[in-house]
């Protein structure tokens, strides 16, 4: 096979490819369904939102849901931009620091030799299996005791430890041959230089994946705003959006607003995903691992 690098699509279509399409296209269609649903749903007028059986595709698209939502947000005491700022600050810091911390730890556990490394990774895998909500109250107590209650740190610090991130990153770094590191060490590179210049570029797909997962976990997180922060002005957008939906409760207008709010909350997910996925998909094509 010739080296193709980033040019992943072959230039010619061939009949022998048909059998792949026969399987891939229907499945791809199924993957798109939930996303199409959430988009259509936000533009449905009231009678279609409550139609039974529910319709998938919107018949008479309307912007009413969004208008309603913006009206409600403009009447609340705290400016909407404040929530956006909070969410961005919290999400970006967690994304950056958790990816950095986990990849550094994963590198050490995978490629450096010291006593505790096996045990630490085992403990991490065990923690992975523990139901996250069962630690909610103890975690709250930690937040109170460390004095970060009602600060931005209450949003950021509890979410930094991401066992799944460390797990995935270590598996990827394990795949990197030791020779790659040794060559750099012989050239006089320090451990950190090896990490930054050799390992990070090679595991870019894994880093991008973990970054996407971290973004997901934080951007949509309600727990920290609900439990660790009482100051309204420090709460995040996801909290605000969900409180709008629950305040107007089961009212007819509430349904429309929550559909619109979901779409607004979902769009950043999609944007981050599209931005990072090109890195994910390039996998190990030009890493010198082949």
């Amino acid at each position: 096979m010739s080296y193709q690098g980033t040019k992943m699509n072959p230039s010619k279509f061939h009949r022998s490819q048909l059998k792949f399409y026969a399987i891939l296209i229907p499945l791809a269609f199924f993957m798109m369904l939930p996303i199409m649903f959430i988009i259509f749903h936000a533009f449905k007028p009231i009678d279609e939102l409550f139609a039974f059986p529910p319709r998938f595709i919107v018949q008479k698209p309307t912007l009413d849901n969004f208008r309603e939502l913006f009206f409600t947000t403009s009447t609340s005491g705290i400016p909407f931009s404040r929530f956006i700022f909070n969410s961005l600050l919290v999400t970006l810091s967690v994304m950056f620091f958790s990816v950095f911390i986990s990849s550094l730890a994963a590198y050490a556990m995978s490629k450096m030799k010291f006593k505790l490394r096996k045990a630490l990774f085992e403990v991490n895998t065990l923690a992975l299996m523990f139901v996250p909500i069962a630690v909610q109250i103890p975690r709250y107590l930690v937040v109170v005791q460390t004095g970060i209650l009602d600060t931005y740190f209450a949003h950021i610090l509890p979410l930094l430890a991401m066992p799944i991130g460390l797990f995935l990153l270590k598996q990827f770094i394990d795949q990197v041959p030791d020779e790659l590191k040794e060559a750099a060490v012989i050239d006089g590179a320090s451990e950190f230089t090896v990490f930054r210049k050799v390992i990070v570029p090679v595991i870019m797909p894994a880093l991008a994946t973990v970054a996407i997962l971290a973004f997901q976990a934080v951007w949509n997180n309600l727990e920290t705003s609900n439990y660790y922060v009482n100051d309204e002005g420090l709460k995040t957008m996801s909290f605000f959006m969900s409180s709008i939906a629950s305040q107007s409760g089961n009212t007819v207008a509430g349904q429309g607003m929550s559909a619109a709010a979901s779409l607004i909350m979902f769009v950043p997910n999609l944007i981050i995903f599209i931005l990072l996925q090109s890195k994910v998909m390039n996998t190990m094509a030009h890493s010198g691992l082949k």
């Binding site: 699509n9 490819q17 798109m32 996407i212 779409l263 909350m265 995903f273």
Partner: peptide
């Protein structure tokens, strides 16, 4: 496999990562 639109398919099949967590499921 070496098929056309490979990049697109890869993107689509990685989508669940943003479906199963977050507002889509909530909705």
């Amino acid at each position: 496999q070496k098929i056309k639109f490979r990049g697109l398919f890869r993107t689509i099949f990685f989508l669940p990562v943003i479906i199963t967590s977050g507002p889509v499921i909530n909705e």
